[in-house]
Structure formats: C-alpha cells, structure tokens
Design a protein around this nucleic acid. Structure first.
Lengths: 130, 130
DNA sequence: CCGGATCCGACGGGATACTG
DNA sequence: CAGTATCCCGTCGGATCCGG
C-alpha cells in the first residue's frame, strides 16, 4: 500500500475488449471517476441518508449534481432509492449489496490515495518546477 | 470481491477536506478516472514500452491523448520517461516504484469490475426498461 | 422536501496537419 | 520516431428558476 513497501511484481492484463462499452474496467471507472460518486458512496457506507441530509453532508455539491449522481448510481445498482409517502415526501438512499461490495476495492484505493497524496503532490511540484 | 460474498460491514470515512485540491481521493481519482490512464498503467505493468509500441498496443488512442496522458502520469510520478539519443530518438516509458505501488489497489478494482460487470449491465438494463 | 428544466462555461478528448 | 499545434465537439458540472 506504501510506495516504500517491498515490491511485489504486479502485472495487469490488458483488456482484450478495447471497446468502451464492453470493457469492464472503463465501464466502472467512468462511473466511479465522476466528481461526486466516491463521496456519496462514502457517505452512504456509514448509513442510509435522505436527500437533504446528503446535501448538508457534502455541502458544496449542487442540487443538480446530487440528483444526477444518485440516479446514475441507482441505475448501476449501487444504491437503492426508497420513497416514503409522507407529507412532504421523504426519500432515502442506501447502498445495495452490490454497492457495499464495491466498497472493499474502493477503500484500498482511498487508503492508497491518503498514504501517497503528499508524494504525488511533491512529484507534481518537482515536475512543474523543472 | 463478489456481491454474493459474505457481507462485511464497511464504513468509509468522509474526507474532511472537501476542497478538491486537498482531497486525496478526488486528486487521485481525477487522474485514474481518465479515459486512458488505467489502460496505459496496465500496459506498463507488463514491461516498459516505447511511445510507438504503446500506440500499437492501445490502438484506438489518439496520438494527442497518448502524449497528454503520459505527461500527466509522469507529472504525478507514476511513470518515468527516458530518452535515448539515438537517430531517430527513442523514448521509453516505465513505471516508477510509486506507480507500481498503485497497481495493487488498482488491481482490486479491476478484478471487481470484471467480476461484477454483467451484474451492473443487468441492473442498467432493468433501470432503463422500467 | 425532492427534485425537473434550462442555460451556460470549462474541460476532455478526437481528427488532422506540421516539426526536429 | 516522438511529439506540437489547431480546430472542433460532446459531456461534465455550476447557477438559476420552476413544480408536485
């Protein structure tokens, strides 16, 4: 997980399907890589939240993007949307089992990012200087 | 790794730094989430490659995007660029230790994507139908 | 409270042509 | 061979207003 850890030799296989829609990696990445997806998944990993609660939690997300990202995540089966017909109606979002299973590999990446963020930023500064 | 695997309860902590540049997750994701980054990292995980070799390997990448993505990955310290002053000059790209360390969490995500791709596509079809 | 509809700027990414 | 320079367009995401 750390760049200074003993180096295991890792080989990733090139996907043979380079077509975007048929390439699993690209298909998942294009969703996870969105600006707000991981943030929302992180929030929902704690517990289900209602729309307005998510909005308060993330704070700098626009109404539009929250709605859209939730829709996309729901479409892919990562989260479930439940409407309670109260007045006014309340809507709750929760992770599905599929969504929860995604958290495992996602967490690995998040931990890596936190561990190596400063290294990356340093490399970036060096590159921009030279 | 599979959605049907026994469910461990995972909680991801919300990053307190919501500012884009200071949030490690977003900072890494915005790079990895690019259209070509993971493909290039996968290729270089096998062995170093020269520019034209990468181009043949990826095939449907444009010259422009290959150059730009390689630059970005180099800037972040994931790959190293070595110029051999032959005639005509040849340039070789290779993973750095930092880049190689990224492959571990990345592979988790790739494996997950391959395992669950069909589930996601099915969910997507259901959503679009209903 | 939970959105949808619309307009708009910024950026990612493709195609093509040109250079050392 | 390994790029740079332009042009162009589609999508992402923000702001704002409107509706059940």
């Amino acid at each position: 997980m750390d760049a200074r850890a003993p180096q295991e030799t890792i080989r990733l296989e090139m996907p043979r399907e380079l077509d975007f829609d048929n390439c699993p990696v690209r298909d998942v990445m294009s969703q996870i890589g969105g600006k707000w997806s991981t943030l929302i998944l992180s929030a929902l990993s704690e517990r289900p939240y209602r729309f307005s609660a998510l909005r308060r939690l993330i704070a700098d997300i626009s109404q539009r993007m929250l709605t859209q990202t939730l829709r996309d995540l729901e479409r892919d089966g990562f989260i479930a949307r439940t409407v309670y017909p109260t007045k006014p109606p309340s809507v709750e979002y929760a992770l599905t089992p599929l969504g929860r299973s995604l958290l495992l590999p996602l967490r690995e990446l998040i931990v890596w990012a936190e561990c190596n963020h400063e290294t990356v930023r340093a490399a970036r500064r060096r590159y921009d200087a030279g």
